[in-house]
Amino acid sequence: MNQQPNYTEHHPRWYRTRVSTYWWLEKPAYFLFILRELSSVFVAWFVVFLLMLVAAVTGGAESYRQFLAWAARPGVVALNVVSLLFVLLHTITWFNLAPQAMAVRFRGKRVPGIWIAGSNYAAWVIVSGVVLWLIVQ
């Protein structure tokens, strides 16, 4: 890897395989990983979209109406649908990975991973519920 061998008669050439640029196509797991990494772009887009919405709302009724008209355009809707799928992928893959990153102990015993992931999902449902309630109100 990082040190070059000495080429001598008794230390013949090592063969080094090069990693292909398309290594992420070699295994489904690698591909899923790349999708997960890519999903952060869409998470960022949702943040931008939200900020634009806030800006439109603070700009008064007219700018809000303009924003709504713009957001209803097929291109924007399509982008948002794709983004939603990626954000869901992002959320689910990270929630499922969370137990690996956290070793929580309760009364001296390791809390099983499913509890950690489960509490993440529960928090997700609760927060979404509260947001929904706020909107519907």
Partner: peptide
């Protein structure tokens, strides 16, 4: 094994 230089046949160099 991938990601290692091959010394011979199936033997890799793991000095790294």
């Amino acid at each position: 094994l991938r990601n290692f230089p091959i010394i011979r046949d199936l033997v890799i160099e793991m000095g790294d």
